[in-house]
């Protein structure tokens, strides 16, 4: 069973469509007869081919927003479409900063509920059904929308597999933004903080460090190890909050969701907030001094030991092989 039309929020950085968008497009094709994308920004032509190849027949694009933060203008433009009867049956967003801003404002504008943090989506009786993990991912709650009007759904990254549809480039159509929705909050400068090497949410190996490292300087071991394994360095929320590493490194509920072949947790106790972001990894190695640490409950190989002793030897062993 499907719904008639789904619109997917397209996100892109420097002309490259983000992975979450491709994941959503793949899922949307299962759920809807027609899949279209919408995009806040000037360079829709640059991403139309990729969006089309993943199943979007059209991309509704706002054009240049003059640096306005996306929430207000994109929500206003979408609400106008809904008011004109030209909207979809469901709006699909990634649980990302811009996704939450637009979806939240849209929900208030058109007075429709939204469901956030979903990991599975379905259609039953012509309505969208969404599944959200609660209690640190130990329980799944499945919810369906009631009442008239479009469904608004936000899905967590890495919930669905991206897949090409073989479609041609999406047709770019104008998504009109009301003039009073521009300029309220403006982006004046962008900073990219990602480390060099593979991206955290795409790497086959992720090596993460936590409070057990003791001090910020010791994070260097995590970076060295990640490099030796051709992986990406990650972090627990504790050391991001403490300012040791930037937020872009954070794995967990409030950070990135990762599902690498190997996830190595070093000096991370495994708070539910962290587990939610990494327990989908294929293989998990954990090193922690506390043998009762919850991280061992999900680890395929658990080392009860001191990261300051284990990591230097591991680094030396790997260096001697290369």
């Amino acid at each position: 069973m499907t719904v008639s039309k789904i619109w997917v929020h397209a996100e892109a950085l420097d002309g490259k469509v983000s992975t979450i968008t491709l994941e959503l497009l793949a899922k949307a094709r299962e759920l809807g007869d027609t899949v279209e994308a919408f995009y806040g920004g000037a360079d829709a032509e640059a991403i139309a081919a990729t969006l089309g190849a993943h199943g979007a027949t059209t991309v509704h694009a706002t054009g240049d927003l003059g640096g306005t933060l996306l929430g207000v203008p994109v929500a206003a433009a979408l609400a106008a479409k809904v008011a004109a009867g030209a909207g979809p049956d469901a709006f699909l967003f990634g649980t990302t900063p811009d996704g939450r801003d637009i979806a939240g404002r849209l929900s208030a504008k058109i007075d429709r509920p939204l469901l956030s943090n979903n990991v599975e989506l379905d259609v039953a009786d012509g309505k969208l059904v969404a599944t959200t993990p609660v209690f640190g991912g130990t329980v799944n709650v499945t919810t369906t929308f009631a009442g008239d009007g479009p469904a608004i759904v936000l899905a967590r990254p890495k919930s669905f597999a991206a897949a090409e549809s073989g479609g041609g480039a999406a047709a770019v159509q104008a998504l009109d933004v009301p003039a009073d929705a521009l300029g309220g909050t403006t982006i004046v400068e962008r900073h990219v903080e990602e480390s060099t090497g593979p991206k955290l949410d795409e790497a086959a190996v992720v090596v993460s460090g936590g409070r057990g490292l003791g001090e910020a300087d010791k994070y260097e071991m995590i970076e060295t190890l990640a490099k030796l394994l051709h992986g990406a360095p990650g972090a627990s929320r504790a050391i991001v909050d403490a300012g040791w590493v930037p937020y872009a490194y954070q794995v967990g509920q409030t950070g990135k969701v990762v599902k690498p072949t190997v996830y190595m947790a070093c000096g991370i106790s495994g708070a539910t907030q962290h587990l939610v972001g990494m327990k989908g990894s294929k293989n998990i190695i954990a090193i922690n001094k506390d043998e009762e640490a919850p991280i061992f409950g999900v680890a395929d190989l658990g080392i009860v030991g001191d990261v300051h002793k284990v990591l230097p030897k591991l680094i030396e062993a790997l260096q001697s092989r290369s």
């Binding site: 509920p113 993990p133 499945t142 369906t144 999900v298 009860v304 030991g305 001191d306 002793k309």
Partner: peptide, 22 residues
């Protein structure tokens, strides 16, 4: 809220593997 919870189910748990003391 205009939404209905249709199911609450335990999520599949991940099994712990080998644990050794260094």
């Amino acid at each position: 809220a205009r939404q209905t919870i249709t199911a609450v189910t335990p999520a599949p748990a991940r099994e712990a593997g080998e644990k050794i003391v260094d």
